[in-house]
C-alpha cells in the first residue's frame, strides 16, 4: 500500500496538473485569441491617436492606402460618428426598439412562464419544450415568415379585409410595428426560459401562508411572487435587450426607412460603403453602450450561481 502510493501519487498529481492546464488553458486560449483579442483590435482602431505610427499599428492598417493617411481617416470617422445625427438617431432608435421589445416580451412572457411553472408537473417539460422548439428552426426563416404575413397583400391584410374590418390593406411591413412584431417573436423564448427557471424555484409555502393570513391572490402576487421573481425578470430582460440593440436581420427585412438601428447602419457602412474604420468606430460605441447592461447581467448571474451553490446541501 505505502510503496504504491509513494510512487503513484506524484504521477497522479502530475496528471492533475496537466488536466488543470488542459481544462482551463485550452478554452481560455481560444476565447482569448478569437473573442478578446478581436475586441482589442476594434477598440484600438476606435481610439487611435495620430501619434501612433508604430509598426504594429501600420501593419494593422495596411489594407487601405498608406498607413499614415489611414490613421487620420479613422480618427475623422470616429468623431464623425459622435457628431453626425444619423448615427445618434440610429443609436437612439436601437435603444428604443430594444426597450419597447423587452417590455413587450416581459408582458407576454411573464404570464406564459408563470402558467408553465405552476402547471401540473408532468406538463411542465412538454410545455417548455414547445417554447424552445421554434428556436431550433432557422432564425432567418422565422423572420422571413412574417414578410408573407405582414405585407400589403399578405395573409394578415387579406384576413382583415375578409373579416370586413378594413377596406384597403394596412401598411405594416417596412414599418416600426413590423420590427416590434419580428423582434418579440424571435426573442420571446429568451425571456420565458430564465423566468420559468426562477418561478419554479419559488417557495409555494409563502403564498399559502399569505392566503392563510387573508391575503388576496392578486396582492400576494404583487407582494411575494413579483419581488421574488425580480432576478428572473432582470436576466430575461438582459438576454433580450442586449442582442436586440445590435440586431441586423429583423430591421433589415421587416423594417422601413424610419426604423434606423445601429446594427443595420454598421452593416451598411461595412458592406455597402466599404468603410471598415467607420464600422469599427460604430462597433466600439455599441460595445461601450452595452457594457453597463452586460455587467449588470453578469453580476446577477454570479449572485444566482453562488445562491444556487449555497442552497445545495
Amino acid at each position: 500500500m505505502t510503496p504504491m502510493s509513494a510512487s503513484g501519487l506524484p504521477r497522479i498529481a502530475r496528471v492533475r496538473r496537466l488536466g488543470r492546464l488542459l481544462n482551463i488553458g485550452v478554452p481560455y486560449l481560444w476565447i482569448g485569441l478569437f473573442f478578446l483579442l478581436p475586441f482589442v483590435i476594434v477598440l484600438r482602431i476606435g481610439i487611435a491617436e495620430p501619434a501612433l505610427a508604430q509598426p504594429p499599428y501600420t501593419a494593422l492598417w495596411q489594407w487601405v492606402d498608406s498607413g499614415l493617411l489611414e490613421i487620420r481617416i479613422s480618427l475623422q470617422n470616429f468623431s464623425l460618428v459622435l457628431e453626425d445625427d444619423l448615427y445618434l438617431a440610429a443609436l437612439l432608435g436601437s435603444l428604443q426598439v430594444a426597450s419597447v421589445c423587452t417590455l413587450l416580451c416581459l408582458v407576454i412572457g411573464y404570464p406564459m412562464a408563470y402558467a408553465i411553472a405552476t402547471a401540473p408537473v408532468r406538463w411542465r417539460v412538454p410545455l417548455l419544450l414547445l417554447v424552445v422548439l421554434p428556436f431550433w428552426t432557422s432564425f432567418l426563416i422565422r423572420v422571413y415568415a412574417w414578410i408573407g404575413i405582414l405585407k400589403s397583400n399578405g395573409l394578415l391584410n387579406n384576413f382583415l379585409i375578409w373579416l370586413g374590418l378594413i377596406d384597403e390593406p394596412l401598411q405594416i411591413l417596412h414599418t416600426q410595428l413590423a420590427v416590434y412584431i419580428g423582434v418579440v417573436y424571435a426573442y420571446l423564448p429568451f425571456m420565458i426560459l430564465p423566468l420559468y427557471a426562477n418561478l419554479t424555484r419559488l417557495d409555494r409555502g409563502l403564498l399559502e401562508a399569505a392566503a392563510d393570513l387573508g391575503c388576496r391572490p392578486l396582492r400576494a402576487f404583487r407582494k411575494i411572487t413579483l419581488p421574488l421573481s425580480l432576478p428572473g425578470i432582470v436576466a430575461g430582460s438582459m438576454l433580450v435587450f442586449i442582442p436586440v440593440v445590435g440586431e441586423f436581420v429583423i430591421p433589415d427585412l421587416l423594417g422601413g426607412p424610419e426604423s434606423l438601428m445601429i446594427g443595420k447602419v454598421l452593416w451598411m457602412e461595412f458592406f455597402s460603403n466599404k468603410d471598415w474604420p467607420l464600422a469599427a468606430a460604430l462597433a466600439t460605441l455599441l460595445l461601450a453602450l452595452l457594457l453597463v447592461p452586460f455587467v449588470l447581467m453578469q453580476r446577477l448571474e454570479q449572485r444566482l450561481q453562488s445562491d444556487d451553490d449555497a442552497a445545495r446541501p
Binding site: 478569437f34 473573442f35 478581436p38 475586441f39 483590435i41 476594434v42 482602431i45 494593422l60 438582459m238 438576454l239 442586449i242 442582442p243 440593440v245 445590435g246 440586431e247 441586423f248 446594427g263 454598421l266 452593416w267 461595412f270 471598415w276 464600422a279 469599427a280 462597433a283 455599441l286 460595445l287 452595452l290 452586460f294 447581467m297
Partner: peptide
C-alpha cells in the same frame, strides 16, 4: 448576448 455584427466585424479585423 453579444450582437452578431460586433463579433463578425471584430473577428474579420
Amino acid at each position: 448576448v453579444m450582437p452578431d455584427v460586433i463579433i463578425g466585424l471584430s473577428l474579420l479585423l
